[in-house]
Amino acid sequence: MKIIFTAKGDNWESKIDERFGRAEMFVLFDEADDSFKAIKIETEHMEHGAGLQTAQKALELSPDVIITGNGAGNKALDILKRSSVKMYIGAGEMSLKEAYEAYKNEKLNLQF
């Protein structure tokens, strides 16, 4: 499983960024080989449509699962739903590690 976390930092102790569209970064974790990679998302300069660009970026990484806090907005959802990715929400207050455990224990809600 390839998992994207929306994150405020680049390690397992970092907090989940509850925003999807304007998340600070993605952390891509691949369960197959335990690889762990942080990718900065730069949306600060964007007036509108940040969610769209973030969604595009997410799909480029072809993840199976996205774990975030509040969930994606309508426009971003529209893009994400074109793939088979599953989006889990409600990890807003957690660290990446806690969020991963919560996901494994089926404690997170599925947005779609």
């Binding site: 007036e47 509108h48 449509g49 940040a50 769209l52 969604a55 595009q56 893009i79």
Partner: peptide
């Protein structure tokens, strides 16, 4: 510059 286009691998929105 206005993020009005999303380019996916098989579709331009």
């Amino acid at each position: 510059n206005f993020n009005a286009i999303v380019a996916l691998s098989d579709e331009i929105i």
